[in-house]
């Protein structure tokens, strides 16, 4: 998979949130986007994921323009900002609900992912009672459980303990070696520098380097 971002600009209610972004991403790599809060990292991920329409410029996924021929990149797993789930369901029920759309992952596989992330799949606890870290783990599982080829992960290490972060590093490196494409953001440069092959820095909606 190859993603090209060409002269991407986005204005929201008169405010420039992304300005003339030009980037390229290809499979078999982990890309990191670093920047302070409000620098435009999340908005850039939203544009790549097809969640927002560019004001100007375009995003090409394998030479197909997003928002024209494609609505969303195919085979994409993502986390954007805070995890969104149905609070009255358990973690397993939430994941099953999502898995039921494509039917590419079995309940047993979901259970084993949950166990890998130290979550009890048999727990009757609803998402409302989950801690932020537990919600983040469920968000990561939904992003990777269908073995998606493109992973767009906004602050994936938020609220996670050190052991889980280390485990995620290994998982993400494994994905890269399998030829998948990962794009992550963080405002902690050290997370990104340890893990990513390519890093770009954002400030005020622009790519600095």
């Amino acid at each position: 998979m190859k993603i090209k971002v060409e002269h991407l600009t986005k204005k929201i209610r008169g405010t420039m949130v992304l300005e003339d972004i030009n980037l390229e991403f290809s499979s078999g790599h982990i890309y990191g986007i670093v920047g302070k809060n409000g620098s435009g990292k999340t908005m850039l991920l939203r544009a790549i994921a097809g969640l927002i329409q560019p004001t100007d410029g375009k995003v090409l996924i394998d030479d197909q323009e997003l928002n024209h021929r494609l609505t969303f990149p195919p085979d994409m797993g993502m986390i954007i900002e805070k995890p969104e789930f149905l609070n009255h369901l358990t973690g397993l029920e939430n994941l099953k609900l999502l898995a039921d759309i494509k039917h590419v992952v079995s309940v047993d596989e979901i259970r084993s992912y949950m166990e890998q992330f130290d979550l009890d799949p048999n727990s009757k606890k609803t998402m409302r009672k989950y801690s932020l870290g537990m919600k983040q783990k469920i968000a990561i599982i939904q992003a990777i459980m269908e073995k998606q080829q493109l992973l767009i992960l906004d602050e994936p290490f938020n609220a996670l303990d050190e052991a889980t972060v280390e485990m995620l590093y290994e998982i993400f490196r494994g994905f890269r070696d399998e030829g998948r494409l990962l794009i992550l953001t963080s405002h902690h440069a050290e997370d990104i520098e340890q893990l990513c092959d390519n890093v770009c820095f954002m400030e005020n909606g622009k790519v600095k380097r």
């Binding site: 993502m78 969104e84 789930f85 609900l97 999502l98 494509k102």
Partner: peptide, 9 residues
Amino acid sequence: LYPLVIRIG
């Protein structure tokens, strides 16, 4: 929710 919408595609 957006995870549902992107899966519907």
